[in-house]
Amino acid sequence: MTSKKKKTITIILSVIAILIAAGAFYGYKEYNRKQKDISDLSAHFTLNSNVLITDFTKDEKASNLKYLDKVIAVDGILKAIDKDDKGNFTLVIGDTASTSSVRCSMDSIHNTEATNVKEGSFINVKGVCTGYTADELGLGSDVILNRSCIIKKQ
């Protein structure tokens, strides 16, 4: 084997080795990837809670296509703070006279932010839209935002 040939083989082998290592590294990173912190994500839509509710009430199918999986920032009156038996908070935003609301289930790392807000105040919340439950059970209709956090005012 000439030394030139040897050199070519070495180069090819090292390129393959680098590619495999890069692939393995990418695979490892991808496998261990965590959800991104919602507070670092910018909102696809910024709107009032009533507008979001009206959109879903008018046309659930179209709104599902438009809003599902999207990060949505809503503002509105905080109607209630729901705390479940496991300590998870849900902020209920909307018109106090209406049974419809935007229910924002707090992200676990932002959960305690819910203790800093007061019922009746005007708040801004960001979360991922998971859908709409129409008022079929007599409980009012709700748009649900998951992994929510409170948007801090600048």
Partner: peptide, 8 residues
């Protein structure tokens, strides 16, 4: 009633 997108 479960919104499937809510599974984390």
């Amino acid at each position: 009633l479960i919104l499937m997108k809510g599974f984390e």
